[in-house]
Design a protein around this nucleic acid. Structure first.
Lengths: 194, 194, 194, 194
DNA sequence: GTGTAACCGAGACGGTACGTCCTGTCTTGCC
DNA sequence: GGCAAGACAGGACGTACCGTCTCGGTTACAC
């Protein structure tokens, strides 16, 4: 979809790609996923709806691309201790999820997707990289001798991502999510070390 | 809404209340939040749409009432140890969230709500009771001497609810969520004891 | 309907009858037939909707009763000439049709009725009496020698009623309908005499 | 409404315009104005409701367009005498009003309209042309010397249209309206000549 | 007097239509 | 062939109204 063979004809304008993503992010901040309309994105971007559907098959794909695009691409640095690196991971996750566009989009994306291809893509893009980072951190901790055996990365990932997710989307504490990260990392480190 | 003073006039029929909730739950299971129609609920319940809108201002309120109604009302029994009780809590949370109606509804509800009254109601109903249960468990652990000081119940709640939530709605591992609960509870107990 | 056998039980309150008709007429003036609601009539009259439907089977019957009630019951006096009496008839018709409640109701009544009982009742009540008056006037003109044979009363009635009706409901000239009556009567007299 | 400036974009399809009008006329014949549903028109026409509301602001406008469209566009031929031409006019009016779609629509249209723009448009379209025809006929009669002065065309129009209108919508005589036209025209000619 | 039957205001009930909105596709004419 | 504009089919949404029914209570006539 995003890369149809594109043999001949006029090339797509990058300006349009950028305008779509940027307008989507704006409207996501202003009105959340609900209240975001493909027509409104087109109008805000000063383009036609067809230019959107030429790039994304559905509204969900567009929002996913806009919200997730370019997120969380760094790998965790070696900070010397499991706990410090877990804290780094948690903070990156919290920063990613609490960005205004992501916050507006994530709930909505979960809604419109049942079990189809989009959710798979999302898992691959959004989840796989984070899990790789978790794996790297755990491997380093084993190498350092902080852990005797490497726990399941998926479980550890859920333990870091989950509370942040719940905090933002269900609990919605008025307090800053960032302050939550160190506490969470400390508890996770303790749990793993035990 | 659900309880207008109602001085005179024909009283509302409980049969209708029940039929709405039950039809909503059925359709939630069959087609998820997306794909659930107010008209379809009315048709399935054998009532008119107006009877629904007399009770709930929006589709979201109806779904919320149907999905959350009567959930998780038991209090945690004294099982003798913090870990056992955390495990009980986690299993209740997992059972609640993975029930078919709730699973179909929760994502969708998060979507259509920005920050308005519905999300507050949801927090009050859905979250408050679980948090009270967490508090009770922690208090008992302090009384037993398992913990020296009572940690923040909100944080502990997030640590239990969050991973389950993430597992179900983001990670969507094919594996059973139930198997996840004991691991999670064990790690939480270790984290708290440290 | 209006007079069910009424064996036992509490008798109907005349206050309610009057309140219904009066509220209907008020709302007819304020908003026309469209925009008149049975619920609004009940509210304005300070009664329940059931009290209305106990008296009238449909909204149309109620409006008909309210608009037509007590209209046009006088018989045409002997004014000495056909033309004078035709003028009297035309003025009565114009006065009847241009009353505010009737004006608001008639179009609407015509709308909701296809060919059923209500239109028959309306014809009987509203039309029959006027036609009897036309017949009386024509008979007197024959007796006076102004006409050699009595024309069809239905045709003459249509020639008097019709232009007034069209003037009010289709043409809607801003000018006063009353000024139209003498001209119409004069032309009708000339047509009949020829 | 029917002609927005429409600079760019896909032009409206004539097929859709025609399908709307044709489906409306069919349903008007089948069930009258009451019993005609915008949804049913859309379904019968094989189009979406939005395509209707893009063209007509309300159901009334649509029905008006369908019932009145293309009616009565001929001008009265010179038939040599006032009476013959009046008869022609009356027959055209009767034919117009007694057409099945118009008969189903007119009463209903009168109902839903109070005094707003729709009734004005209707007057302009439906009435203005007929009145112009009346004027032409009267002018020819003056030129022929049949009339000494030209009477008010509005009054004459009311005298022709009105009885037909009343006959069809109020009196509803079972007899054929067509037979009514010559009598009416003869009487009108006599009245004008006097 | 005390039934009993029909009344009363209030308002919920099933049903149906309205007019608006949105999605994803298609069709113009211009570049 | 991409692009802006916008029409298309389809269908859900939330509102409004109709005519019926139910509640708790009142009022007259008959026994």
């Amino acid at each position: 979809m995003s890369a149809p063979t594109a043999r001949g004809g006029r090339p797509r304008e990058e300006r349009v790609d950028a305008a779509i993503l940027s307008a989507t992010r704006e409207l996501l901040v202003e009105g959340g996923y609900a209240g975001l309309t493909v027509g409104a994105v087109a109008a805000r971007a000063g383009i036609g709806k067809a230019a959107i559907y030429r790039r994304y098959e559905t509204k969900q794909e567009m929002v996913f691309a806009a919200a997730v695009h370019g997120l969380d691409l760094e790998s965790p640095p070696d900070l010397g201790s499991l706990r410090a690196e877990l804290e780094w991971l948690t903070e990156v996750i919290a920063a990613t999820l609490s960005g205004p566009a992501v916050a507006g989009a994530l709930g909505g994306l979960l809604a419109d997707m049942s079990d189809d291809a989009v959710v798979s893509r999302m898992r691959e893009t959004f989840v796989a990289h984070q899990r790789a980072n978790v794996t790297a951190v755990l491997d380093r901790a084993v190498a350092r001798g902080e852990l005797t055996s490497r726990p399941d990365a998926a479980v550890v990932h859920a333990m870091l991502l989950g509370p942040v997710f719940a905090w933002l989307f269900v609990l919605r504490e008025p307090g800053d999510v960032r302050g939550f990260a160190p506490t969470l990392a400390r508890m996770a480190a303790a749990a793993l070390s035990a």
